[in-house]
Simulated assay, not measured.
Amino acid sequence: ALVGALVVIWGDKGLGTFRPQGLLILLAALSWSVYFALQKHYSSRYSPLTIVCYTIWAGTLLLGVYAPGLATQVSAAPVRVNLAVLVLGVFPSALAYLLWAYVLAHTEVSRSVCVMYLVPPVAMLMAAVLLGSHVSGGVLFGMAIVLGSVFAMRRAA
């Protein structure tokens, strides 16, 4: 699946040169894996909704550094932009975290986390269908590798 993800990247924009900022992606992946492990640990003690509430509120608290001037920016933004932010906060964020917490509460982390490889191909497919983005042959080939590996991992587990 990792090879498939690399093929998707290569097929879309090319590999290019190394940038130190790319290490932030590795830090994000490490942080997410720690989050999954902690979430699984506490899923026996707390409900999925409680875990998600703690997660969302902790993230909101950390974003508090942007609070100065927030009211001014929100009032100056068009209504459609504020509505889009609200919809993005509810559906792809809160609802996705709630569903993921439910999955982790009822399965093993190692079994459920392999499905996360489906996020890039599904996002690219949605971008192509909903936004009219161009998907190259290399991206489609990488998506096929990712999907094949996810199905193989699920079958082996």
Rank of each mutant, 00 (worst) to 15 (best):
P68S: 09
P68I: 01
G69N: 14
L70W: 11
A71T: 11
A71R: 15
T72A: 15
T72C: 12
T72M: 13
T72D: 15
T72E: 14
T72H: 15
Q73D: 13
Q73N: 12
Q73E: 14
Q73Y: 10
V74L: 15
V74W: 13
V74N: 06
S75L: 15
S75M: 14
S75G: 12
A76F: 14
A76E: 14
A76S: 15
A76K: 09
A77P: 08
A77D: 08
P78G: 09
V79I: 10
V79Y: 03
V79W: 10
R80A: 15
R80M: 14
R80E: 15
R80Q: 15
R80D: 14
V81R: 13
V81F: 12
V81T: 11
V81A: 12
N82C: 10
N82T: 05
N82L: 04
N82K: 05
N82Q: 00
L83R: 02
L83K: 03
L83E: 09
L83Q: 09
L83P: 03
A84C: 08
A84M: 10
V85E: 00
V85L: 12
V85C: 10
V85T: 01
V85I: 12
L86Q: 08
L86T: 09
L86A: 11
L86N: 05
L86E: 07
L86P: 04
L86V: 12
V87C: 08
V87Q: 03
V87E: 04
V87D: 00
V87P: 03
V87M: 09
L88I: 11
L88W: 10
L88H: 06
G89L: 06
V90H: 04
V90Y: 03
F91N: 00
F91T: 00
F91G: 01
F91W: 08
F91P: 00
P92S: 03
P92I: 04
S93K: 01
S93T: 11
S93D: 07
A94C: 08
L95D: 04
L95P: 04
A96V: 07
A96S: 08
A96M: 01
Y97K: 00
Y97I: 03
Y97G: 00
Y97C: 07
L98P: 00
L98F: 07
L98V: 07
L99N: 02
L99D: 01
W100M: 01
W100I: 01
